[in-house]
């Protein structure tokens, strides 16, 4: 996507100016369809969860719970429970995984997006491989290695194994960003007196910020919702929210499972709200989320 095309697509006023009102009308109709669709498929399923979390008795065929209680929320908030620990673990793991993904994914994406080098196609294929090959298969193979190096049953081990599914998304997003990125802006900044660090700080990072936010969102949420790998490598010692949630759901306690699910959803929504301005504003001018 070119710079101007992207700006046009993201700015209704520009659209009206460029190609008359008709396209703008179509865009806004489309926008409503998308919003309603999102509400129906994403928000609506959460409502029963919230109801569950406050219910004491909710049996067929009643549409709403017949008795309400705060029992589930008290249990979730109770310090004797593992919920706080699991939330803490989940947060630490997801944040560290995201940070590591940025550290590895941004240079890797830059290399893939900006430069030509022999074997580039192969590298691209290998990067996508963890997404195509079932992660469980890879992780089972890696598990023996993890045991040998003392990484199993530890927080670090879980972080490392989460990188397997998370990192490819970061690299792919950043490769798309850098494919539309003009590194001459960096030369221009250098020429105007910015040293290497200031060039990154004032030119490169602002230019790739939208992609960086999208990529971070992906990696954070992938790590946040990972169940199988955490269970396998953490060996039940590293307890995260998905593990806890699965336990309660399996034991049939719908009220607590509902409350936990709500807790589980909150960070995703928060992150999305917090970063939405990066996802839709004209900030993407110098680069873009091209491959997406």
């Amino acid at each position: 996507m070119t710079m101007s095309a992207q700006l046009a697509a993201e700015d209704d006023a520009d659209l009206v100016g460029r190609s008359g009102g008709r396209r703008a009308v179509r865009v806004s109709t489309l926008r409503w369809v998308v919003i309603i669709g999102l509400l129906a498929f994403l928000i609506a399923p959460i409502i029963p969860l919230i109801l569950w979390s406050f219910s004491f008795r909710w049996t067929f065929p009643n549409l709403l719970p017949t008795e309400y209680s705060m029992r589930a929320w008290e249990a979730v908030a109770s310090p004797t429970n593992d919920v706080l620990l699991a939330t803490w673990n989940s947060t630490v793991i997801a944040v560290v995984v995201t940070a590591l993904s940025i550290l590895i994914g941004v240079p890797a994406g830059r290399a893939l997006g900006l430069y030509k080098f022999p074997g580039k196609r192969l590298v691209e294929l290998l990067i996508v491989a963890p997404i195509i090959v079932p992660t469980l298969a890879v992780a089972l193979g890696m598990h023996t290695l993890f045991i040998r190096y003392g990484l199993s049953n530890s927080l670090i081990g879980v972080i490392v194994v989460h990188l397997i599914p998370a990192l490819p998304y970061m690299i792919l997003v950043m490769a798309g960003v850098f494919a539309n990125y003009d590194s001459a802006f960096e030369s221009q900044a250098r020429s105007l007196g910015a040293n290497g660090f200031k060039t990154q700080r004032f030119v490169t990072i602002p230019a790739i910020m939208p992609g960086l936010v999208v990529g971070s969102l992906f990696t954070f949420l992938i790590s946040w919702s990972e169940y199988v790998l955490t269970l396998l490598v953490g060996g039940g010692q590293v307890i995260t929210l998905p593990l806890l949630l699965f336990n309660f759901a399996r034991s049939g306690d719908n009220a607590i499972a509902g409350a936990l699910a709500v807790v589980f959803i909150v960070p995703g929504i928060l992150v999305l709200v917090f970063t939405s301005k990066h996802l839709s504003s004209g900030q993407a001018a110098m680069g873009g989320t091209g491959a997406l």
């Binding site: 710079m3 003009d182 001459a184 802006f185 602002p206 004209g282 900030q283 001018a285 110098m286």
Partner: peptide, 9 residues
């Protein structure tokens, strides 16, 4: 530069 390279943001 030939294409000005004004920082767009």
């Amino acid at each position: 530069f030939q294409n000005y390279l004004l920082f767009p943001y």
